[in-house]
């Protein structure tokens, strides 16, 4: 299992578009991808779960990947979040 602590940088947070782009990208990896936020865990391959988590700009989160290709998944996921989903 690998993980990284991150801060959501884009103004709108995980709204519809970033959430679906992110979930889509994570869905390609065989490992499980989870986001821990406010004490809860969310399946990061699910757009609906990501929107439901209500992560805002400035939210501190932990991205956790566990299983095959966990390092690749963590690298891509962390970069997407750090880049503010290109917004």
């Amino acid at each position: 299992m690998v993980s990284k602590f991150l801060t959501v940088p884009n103004a709108q947070g995980f709204h519809m578009r970033p959430a679906s782009v992110f979930a889509g990208a994570m869905g390609k990896y065989p490992c499980s991808v989870t986001i821990k936020f406010n004490g809860n865990s969310y399946n990061a391959k699910s757009t609906l779960n990501l929107i439901a988590a209500c992560m805002k700009c400035g939210s501190d989160i932990e991205l956790i990947c566990d299983g095959d290709q966990e390092n690749e998944a963590l690298a891509e996921g962390a970069k997407m979040i750090e880049d503010g989903f290109g917004e």
């Binding site: 519809m16 578009r17 679906s20 979930a23 889509g24 869905g27 399946n43 391959k45 699910s46 757009t47 609906l48 779960n49």
Partner: peptide, 16 residues
């Protein structure tokens, strides 16, 4: 049109 294609991605949500 992306609003509608968004519905496709909602229904295909792996968790759901």
């Amino acid at each position: 049109a992306e609003i509608m294609t968004g519905h496709i991605s909602i229904v295909n949500d792996p968790f759901l």
